[in-house]
Design a protein around this nucleic acid. Sequence first.
DNA 1: GCATCCAACGTAAGCGGTTACGTAGGTAAC
DNA 2: GTTACCTACGTAACCGCTTACGTTGGATGC
Lengths: 359, 359
Amino acid sequence: MADRSTIYEVARRSGVSTATVSRVMADGTGFSAATRERVKATAAELSWVPSGSARGLAARRTGIVGLIFPDLGQSGDAEEESPLYVDQVIRGAERAATSAGDAVLIAATSTASGRDLAFSVAGKVDGLVILARSLPDDDIVALSRSVPVVLLATNLARSGPDFVGPDFVGADNRGGSRAMTAHLIAVHGHTDLAFLAGPAGSPDSEERFAGFCAALRDAGLPEPAAPAATGSFTEAGGEQAVRELIATGRRPGAIVCGNDEMALGALTALRAAELRVPADVAVTGFDDIAAARRARPALSTVRQPMRELGECSVRLLLSRIAAADTARKSVVLPTELVTRRSCSCASRAVSGPSGRSPG
Amino acid sequence: MADRSTIYEVARRSGVSTATVSRVMADGTGFSAATRERVKATAAELSWVPSGSARGLAARRTGIVGLIFPDLGQSGDAEEESPLYVDQVIRGAERAATSAGDAVLIAATSTASGRDLAFSVAGKVDGLVILARSLPDDDIVALSRSVPVVLLATNLARSGPDFVGPDFVGADNRGGSRAMTAHLIAVHGHTDLAFLAGPAGSPDSEERFAGFCAALRDAGLPEPAAPAATGSFTEAGGEQAVRELIATGRRPGAIVCGNDEMALGALTALRAAELRVPADVAVTGFDDIAAARRARPALSTVRQPMRELGECSVRLLLSRIAAADTARKSVVLPTELVTRRSCSCASRAVSGPSGRSPG
DNA sequence: GCATCCAACGTAAGCGGTTACGTAGGTAAC
DNA sequence: GTTACCTACGTAACCGCTTACGTTGGATGC
């Protein structure tokens, strides 16, 4: 509690200068073993902890990285255990940071306070990891002008000629979607597949659609020019999109959805239309949120390695902080196929890496 | 990236002094609207964010609170989604901090690095919330000498005459256990109940045992002098303890376990002994970890309000930071009874607050 | 018309470390 | 016995803010 003692006090009592105390505390060199012990003893005796603020100021390095994530499930998840999606990322980030001697500052952006919060955090850290859907692109661009930023699982839409965006870490959307689609074709014999896209302009959705198309091409099936339907990345969006699809008279054998929420909505719409899943139509998602496993039927999906994404993004951020003026990097982590009932699989999980590529 | 500009640069370009810039950025008073806009514009133009370190140094307040938690499930939870226990606390802490304008720094202590990590964090924050099982008591005492500390869901064993421990926030162990035991007696008619205690000296275990005894007393049943068995707070501990209990020839109608892990172990031991749960013997846990719901039979247990605990501990910490020299506080939050198959209940969840009391 | 008061600033002394640079004393080389 | 060099420190100039205190100029009171 008595946070009163300073490096001066410790130096005085140890009979050395503040420089020496500083060197000892930083595990540096330039002092004898005896001096080291004396200083450490004095510090312990005074229960002195060097001030992070003073250190940060003088050394121009706080030793803190910030993680900004969207505050999903503000309400309504009293019953539902909230998607541990974000939690895994947090844990991964913490682990990577700690093992590098840094700490992680977390902040959830509720749409209201997002901008101010983010800027407040930006001042306290050496760099920022920004998770998808935390902030509008403009704010991200603004932030990245005052502090190193790594984007996680999202990418800036704007890619002008000389615009160099922040570093990026994400999962292999294309490969995962391609693997899932190939699975539906090769294992379950589907030939009439429909893709349910997320909001227009979403890089995630576009990449997943590209993977879907690639798998069709691979199998020699006709490749659609555009997704069969489009909606927002929500249950309501998926339900709506499938309802409209059905209304057009289309009856695909399988529906590949842009994400799990949409797939969940798709299940609802299909049930309402008295179509059985997977007997009449197979449904797949993307992300493997907690609800996917609990859906009836359990949802086949593509899992993103959340913890690894968290770790990876912090590592990338730290390397960027250490070397500011190197080329922009982007890292793509492999996804994992999770096959459950909704695609007619009985097995628990067939896993397989989907690919890995530089950006 | 160009984190170059300082308050001096902003002041110069705005034609004011640094004091005015500072006042504007802190949303203070003592400047005209015109000045305010000019400064804000300049700041945005330079994409300047005030340095948290410099602010912290000058104002003696970082605006950061630290949360220290144990790094459970380092390995082996590839299949198991790790108990979201801690994650809920983190989210709660984040919410409370953010709404007070602060941020949360998180750090997981793996037994190896615990001490150093904690002290490193202590220097960067205004105060610390320390979750149960993160650190040995000695380290907690040491930390609390250099920074305000709130203990979460654990309490220091040592309570010497003039020893004033840190503030404390926890769930109503006694009330929760009492309610569960009363449920077993009143609803399911049990009269021969056994308590499976955690490690000796654990305040949690002791309080839960006390609640167990109180319920027996309430019902006019004989009250044991000591728990029927004792083990560590793990599955192995619970399994072992029940095996030994059975070996003595004892066949209680219900086993009230010190926590969920022990209860899970108990299920295993009972199965091995060919005793059916709940037909032959009822089993209950404490905590409501994720695995409790998925156990066969699903485990009846007592849920701690993790998110609320996180929120509450941060709020308490912030009030302590604001007013250092007030009496030690302790807050006890009510628990919730969660009845599932393992106590013969079919219903999903019967909830009820268990009590609330000052310390 | 003059004292009073207040809003709107400016001045400058820290806050508690880090670190470039300087120095003393001892050792090795020749 | 010098010179050169290295280890183990000390000196002091920052790092970029906050804030107590001082100042100014116009409005107000009488």
